Simulated assay, not measured.
Amino acid sequence: MAGRLFVSYLRPVIQVQRCGLMTLDRVGNRDVVGFGYNGEPTYLDRTDFPYPALRWKENTPDIMALKEKEKGDWKKLSIEEKKILYRASFRQTFSEMDAPTGEWKGIVGLSLLISSAGIWLYLYFKTFAYPPLPETFSMERQLAQLDRMKKLDMNPIDGLCARK
């Protein structure tokens, strides 16, 4: 009981220290600008959650100079400088995130490869591994067996449903 109480008392301290150490290594020299997807300072390109907690690139002297310049009039910034500032904050645009990747081709190809391997394996076992079917499986034998069952009146249908 005392051990559980001690561990539950220290659990928040351990988690804060662990998360603090992990995030400092991952963040580096980048700006933390928001709460993040799960409250963690990570970068994710997602269309359903468009604001990541971190900037994409680390702060370099060039980017810091552009950030100081952007605090003024944005009309003085060139298109290239605006693009550089955008790429410092985000890795992809929405159109780049939504663009088709062609991943479906590999999935279809792999599923066809696995299906063809299964068919070839079935044919191999059918030809070489399984014994031949008994004679009673031939159509002539089955018809002869059905004729004999009719002649011997095996399993006749009785009851209310059999009467007209």
Rank of each mutant, 00 (worst) to 15 (best):
M1L: 12
A2P: 12
A2M: 13
G3Q: 15
R4D: 07
F6Q: 09
S8A: 09
Y9F: 09
Y9S: 12
L10M: 06
R11D: 11
R11T: 13
P12M: 01
I14C: 04
R18E: 11
G20A: 13
G20M: 11
L21G: 10
L21Q: 09
L24R: 13
D25W: 13
V27D: 14
G28K: 03
G28V: 08
G28S: 06
N29Y: 14
R30G: 06
V32S: 12
V33L: 12
V33E: 08
G39Y: 08
E40D: 03
E40A: 03
P41K: 02
D45P: 12
F49E: 14
R55L: 12
R55P: 09
W56P: 06
T60L: 04
P61L: 08
D62E: 05
A65G: 03
A65C: 04
K67H: 14
E68Q: 01
K69G: 09
E81I: 07
Y86A: 02
F90G: 02
R91P: 10
R91D: 12
R91N: 15
Q92D: 11
Q92I: 14
T93F: 05
T93A: 01
F94V: 14
S95M: 05
E96W: 10
P100T: 05
T101L: 11
E103A: 02
E103S: 01
W104R: 04
G106A: 06
I107M: 13
G109R: 05
L112Q: 04
I114N: 03
A117D: 14
A117R: 06
G118H: 08
I119C: 05
I119Q: 05
W120T: 03
L121R: 00
L123P: 09
Y124A: 00
F125P: 00
F128T: 00
A129C: 08
Y130C: 01
L133P: 05
L133V: 07
S138W: 07
M139Y: 08
E140M: 05
A144E: 04
A144H: 05
L152Q: 02
L152F: 06
N155R: 00
P156C: 00
P156H: 00
D158Y: 07
L160C: 13
L160I: 10
C161R: 14
A162Y: 05
R163F: 15
R163C: 11
K164T: 09
